[in-house]
Design a protein around this nucleic acid. Sequence first.
RNA 1: CGGGGCGUAGCGCAGCCCGGUAGCGCACCGGACUGGGGGUCCGGUGGUCGCAGGUUCAAAUCCUGUCGCCCCGACCA
Length: 561
Amino acid sequence: MRLSKSLVPTLREDPADAEAISHTLMLRAGLIRQLAAGIFVWLPLGQRVLDRINAILREEMNAIGGQEITMPVIHPAELWKQTGRYDGIPEMFKLKDRHDRDLVLGMTHEEVIAWLAAREIRSYRDLPQIWYQIQTKERDEARPRSGVLRTREFVMKDSYTLDPDLPALDRSYAAHEAAYRKIFDRCGLTYRVVQSDTGMMGGLGAHEFMAPSPAGEDEIAICAGCGYAANVELAKGVPEPPAFPPGTKEEVATPNARTIAEVAAFLKVDPRLTLKSLLFVAPKAGPVLVLVRGDHNLHERKLARALGEEARAAHPAEVQQHLGAPVGSVGPVGARVPVLADEALKQGTYVVGANREGFHLRGVTPGRDFQARFVDLHTVAPGEACVSCGKALEVERVIEIGNIFKLGTKYSEGLNAKYLDESGQEKPIVMGSYGIGPARIAATAIEQGADADGIVWPAAIAPFDVHIVLVSRRDEAQVAAAESIYAACRAAGLQAVLDDRDERPGVKFKDADLLGVPVRVTIGNALAKEGVVELKERRAPRREQRVAPGAVVDAVRALRA
RNA sequence: CGGGGCGUAGCGCAGCCCGGUAGCGCACCGGACUGGGGGUCCGGUGGUCGCAGGUUCAAAUCCUGUCGCCCCGACCA
């Protein structure tokens, strides 16, 4: 590619709308432009990066027996009604055609796969299968953010496995996990594999591939001792219990003290000796009082799992109605609603709201003074003890770059995807589903690798292998050398970009750094003086070497090796 | 959905309180010089001040509404 003739609109300044490093640099390096919130145009350089990532995805998926297909973006609503997912997913784009038929834009493809399997799979002899596609997904996200890290339209490599039984699913799942490790290794990312919630996807188990980055939206808890690692929506930790002072149950006036901090300060007690009482309302179960330790935060995902349904926080009027006291004075003692308490509250005595405005109770012992169901509810905090080995957990912010789900038979049963086993018995096909977002790989590579000068691409997914800077377009010898090096690189199978613009050298060097191509070749003064060109690595420590123009291809290859 | 911020030239911004000529830097076009880390000088092009309504002799500026974008949270199949 010649920069003089290409659409590579680099920006000198940081765009005002970009916060994340990857967002800023993808805009500045001319990889993307934003059309609307969470909707992007991929420019030539960005497209090249995606192409390279997709090539790796195809190689590794094919290597485990994956067969590439392409499914539609537009689905009949009926398909989603059959699996019960048509209603209740706010992110789903819905539309009608001219005949007033309901359609949806595909946000994932379990339904279509199950539909296809129901038609094409007959026998255990047809199994297992791995089908995948690299295709556009549409999701009306509540809040698109951080450039291409969370968008409303994005390309996903989604694959699906069809197996006769659970042991076979386990093998397909393991094959995917291994393939994913190869993919992310090749893409040059640092990541870990963690246990994750199956969420509303349903299913038997799931893992996420998480890349550490401050730009991430998720948090994981990890144990340096035993290797335990899980998304915080799932991760369990054992908090250190405070020293519980002796004392019996008594009511104390706490005028104007409503928050945990105010109550703790007023009574001069450690917040860890108080209980946070939160009223939630579940669609089926109704009101439920949820308790976590004063210094802890409830994880609503854990609550949803414990209840078996999504609950919402009660309105102040509902709190008054169900507990007879306003927010800030409520507690579990004498409450007429079911109580769900965090496991950490099995021991100790606490300060709780008295269900009487302006009063709290101290010396309250869970289990004695009120009954509750104990489940893990609090969000794990750094320093809590690992449940398997007892060492202190760390909490790390991460970008989710891939996930793998054991789906089981939820979708195959909904869409009647069955097969006949060896004994002629009809059985539901056991499914798995697996996703990777190529744009997230690109953004994560930038987040993890960029320096003050711009992008530093991992070699395998860089838009080019070599960036050739022609310092002076008016120097005929330099032009001739640059052209022959450019041609030689391309002939040798290297992806090369030639900066043949009529710009000052400084501009070209700045842009080269910004674009982040692994090796830069500069054809400048050293050519006339010493008959050499200069090679410089983009990655720190930015080693340099000088070689004859004819030796550039070998030198670039050596650097890549 | 809750909270906050911002919409003025392609990009980054000032002007808005306190109404009266639409400005700066970069980019872009022409010219001269320059030529190894985002050059200098001279001369230019380019703006429905997001949109609609209102107040006023007069609105980028004040008022009302609306649309869009960003950030924090909720959510994230």
